[in-house]
């Protein structure tokens, strides 16, 4: 935590958790779209997001984030009409997600290049978020650190290859947290690598070149 977590963020109101946090959850989806336009969005709102979301503009905020807007962008207010203008196919459903934080959204998305994915994330207060699931796999990261998500096949040596490359080619980069999750043995897996400082974009390119890596995404500190 630093002083700007308290005096800040600059945001579009009315709620740091229901509006600013929701934009940030949307932005995680935007990052996972990996430069392609989101074309189909299915949003499930749970708990307080479902109960009071509309009066807080949570729907607008999530879509704004998915389209890549920031929580301080005046466009948040007009996100529904902007989404319609872009031909974005979106729906909202209210459903109680068992065991989830009160402010939780599940977002299923499809992109213009035909890929699809899913994010489960919660807004935990003051605009801070935690992401707990990506593409059906358990993850645990928040918006206050720089996070690299590496989607890869569950094969021996992939983790060593990624971390070795990071160590040898980006020696200043320190990993502060690491976790791994997989769908099934030998299936798709996801590495969550949190770093102290902001990794350069070239690192992401280098990770993508490693065998059995499907994709790598950098989610900057929000």
């Amino acid at each position: 935590m630093n002083v700007f977590d308290i005096i800040g963020p600059v945001m579009i109101g009315p709620s740091s958790s229901h509006t600013a946090g929701a934009v940030r959850i949307g932005r995680v989806v935007n990052k996972l779209c990996d430069g392609h336009d989101p074309v189909k969005i299915r949003i499930t709102l749970s708990g307080s997001f479902a109960e009071t979301g509309k009066g807080h503009g949570t729907d607008k905020a999530l879509l704004a984030g998915i389209m890549g807007f920031h929580s301080y962008s005046p466009d948040v207010k007009d996100a529904l009409s902007i989404a319609k203008d872009h031909g974005l196919d979106y729906t909202f459903t209210n459903e109680d997600i068992r065991g989830a934080h009160p402010n939780t959204a599940k977002i299923d998305f499809e992109t213009s290049d035909g890929k699809s994915g899913e994010v489960l994330a919660s807004s935990i207060g003051g605009g801070n978020i935690t992401v707990s699931r990506v593409n059906g796999m358990k993850v645990d990261f928040n918006g206050s650190s720089n996070t690299i998500l590496v989607m890869h096949m569950d094969k021996p040596g992939v983790i060593a290859n990624v971390t070795n490359m990071m160590h040898w080619q980006y020696e200043d980069l320190n990993i502060s947290n690491f976790s791994l999750s997989r769908q099934e043995k030998g299936g798709e897996a996801i590495m969550t690598i949190v770093t102290d400082n902001l990794p350069p974009e070239t690192l992401i390119e280098d990770i993508r070149k490693i065998d059995h890596v499907i994709n790598a995404i950098l989610i900057r500190r929000l």
């Binding site: 579009i12 509006t19 948040v76 003051g126």
Partner: peptide
């Protein structure tokens, strides 16, 4: 009031209390 109307504010420390500081 700016906050409640989806205007731009500084959360300080939160949006609900953004008018005091």
């Amino acid at each position: 009031g700016c906050n409640a109307a989806m205007g731009r504010i500084v959360a300080a420390p939160t949006a609900g209390s953004c008018g005091i500081i």
